[in-house]
Each structure stands twice: as C-alpha cells, then as structure tokens.
C-alpha cells in the first residue's frame, strides 16, 4: 500500500515539477524555433508513456500485493497484446522521428544567401574572420601561422587580402541575416554554442565544420564552449551581439582587413628600426 502510494507520488511530483519549476530554456533568438517544437512534441509523447507505465506499475503493486490466498495468473505470453504494443510503440517512434528528420534536413541545408563567418577557436578563446567585399573567405593553413599572420591565411590566395580579422572574443551579427558559421580550430576540439540560438557544432583542428542560423532577436548573447577542451574549458567565453543594420555597419567600419593589418605591422616594424 505504502509502496504503491510512494511510487505514484513520485510520478505526480515529477509532473508538478515539470510544470511549476522555474527552470526552462531561454527564449529562442534564432530561426530554430522548430527545434523547440520538436522537443515539445517529444515531451508530450514520451511524457505520456512515462506517466502511463509508472502509474500502471504503481496500480499493479497496490492491486496485486501479496495475499496468502491469491494465486498469480499463469500466462507465458499474449501474442495479440504484444503485437499491438509493438506497433503502437513503432508508431510513436515514427511520430517523433519524422518531424525531427525534417528539421535536421533544414539544419544541414545552408541557404544561398547566408553570410559566411569564420569562427577560429583556440585554447582558450574565440576569434572571427569576415569575408571582405568579395564575399569569399581566403584559404588558410596552420602551417602559415606566425606573428604577422595569426590566422594562418594563405598570402597567395587573392581572396584573403580583404578578409576582416576580428581579434576579439565578441562578434556582431546583423539581425535577420542568415549566417553560415565556418568553424576552425587551431589546437583541440571546441564547440561554438549559444544557448539562445539552439544550434551548435564541434570545431576540429584540420577540417572546417559549419552550421547556420538566422539571428532574429536583437540582444547580447553569451558564447559557450560546449566540447571539453582542457583546463580552461569553462572559461572559454565570448559574446555575440545582434545589431540593427546601422549599428552593425558602425561596428564593421571599425574592423580592419588583413591587408591593412599587414601594412600596419610593416609600418610599426619600420618605425622600430628607424628608432634604433
């Protein structure tokens, strides 16, 4: 009696907790609202199964508790029942999977007009690179990295000259402009994750990975590293600021291109030599 009630109470408490707890996801700030919808759908379907199975179990524990005079039923199997349950479950699984795959298809299909941004991860911080006026990011290689060329840009690639280097943990995005995030890592695995945008993907040294989203809400969002990357993993933060068109242009105007940076460094060097 007691046991059955406690088990039932635990289930009721779980439901109450779900509806009354203050902990829930942050409001979505990108186009991936339909990920939330898929989660809600899964919640209802699986939650119903969980509650049904556990309450039924509690009922059995109460109804069929030990009585000396009771004799348990002898029933090796019930084909019809098992068959029905199998198909019902299969149906439920299809109902969860099908919408999930549709959204996944959308997730991996980058729109044509997406603005490409390179996110460069290292132990432990973030840098960014935007394509210049040509809209193309220049080629890179870890082998080219030196003090003058912190991103390892290929100097022989004409597309690299006008690339804009944002050597700062904060990134600005234009609102309602789809972006394709191209992820690069210099050392180990990282993961560029902004909870409000829902999307994430690992960065790997040696290859470029990507994902896309459209920021749809103005604001400032924290970037977290979501793949363990060593002692400083928890401190690998940054901010994404989603701006209106005007603010974005102002910010962009302050950034410098690779070419400019090279000439500036060259000047500095010459100055140093001249001073000596």
């Amino acid at each position: 009696m007691f046991v059955a009630i406690v088990f039932a109470l635990i289930i009721v408490a779980s439901i109450v907790f779900h509806f009354w707890s203050p902990w829930w996801w942050t409001p979505v700030a990108s186009n991936w609202g339909n990920i939330d919808d898929t989660i809600i759908l899964t919640f209802w379907v699986t939650g119903a199964v969980f509650v049904a199975v556990c309450l039924f179990m509690s009922y059995c524990v109460w109804e069929y508790r030990y009585r000396p005079e009771r004799k348990a039923e002898y029933k090796p199997e019930d084909k019809k029942l098992e068959f029905r349950l199998t198909w019902l479950t299969a149906l439920g699984v299809v109902a969860l999977l099908a919408p999930g795959l549709v959204v996944w298809n959308k997730y991996i299909t980058v729109p044509e007009n997406a603005f490409k941004i390179e996110v460069l991860a290292y132990q432990w911080g973030w840098n960014y690179r935007l394509p210049g006026d040509d809209g193309v990011l220049g080629k890179t290689s870890v082998g080219f990295i030196n003090d003058d060329n912190p991103y390892g840009l290929d100097l022989s690639d004409p597309n690299s000259k006008d690339d804009i280097l944002v050597m700062d943990a904060d990134l600005h995005l234009k609102i309602n402009q789809p972006v394709k995030i191209e992820l690069r890592s210099l050392d180990v695995l990282h993961n560029f994750y902004i909870p409000q945008f829902r999307a994430k993907m690992d960065t790997l040294p040696g290859i470029i990975t990507y994902y896309w989203f459209t920021p749809e809400k103005k604001g400032e969002y924290e970037i977290l590293c979501a793949e363990y990357c060593g002692t400083g993993h928890y401190a690998m933060r940054g901010y994404v600021k989603v701006d209106e068109e005007q603010d974005y242009s102002n910010w962009l105007a302050k950034q410098i291109s690779f070419e400019k940076m090279l000439t500036k460094k060259e000047l500095n060097k010459n100055l140093l030599i001249a001073e000596k």
């Binding site: 959204v103 829902r198 994430k200």
Partner: peptide, 15 residues
Amino acid sequence: LFLGNVIIDVPLSDT
C-alpha cells in the same frame, strides 16, 4: 528518445 533524435540532440548535447 530526445537525444537520439538528431535535431533535438543539437541544443541538448554536451549539456
């Protein structure tokens, strides 16, 4: 079932 469904795993993985 949440985590196995690839798109739901995207926001929830590594959390």
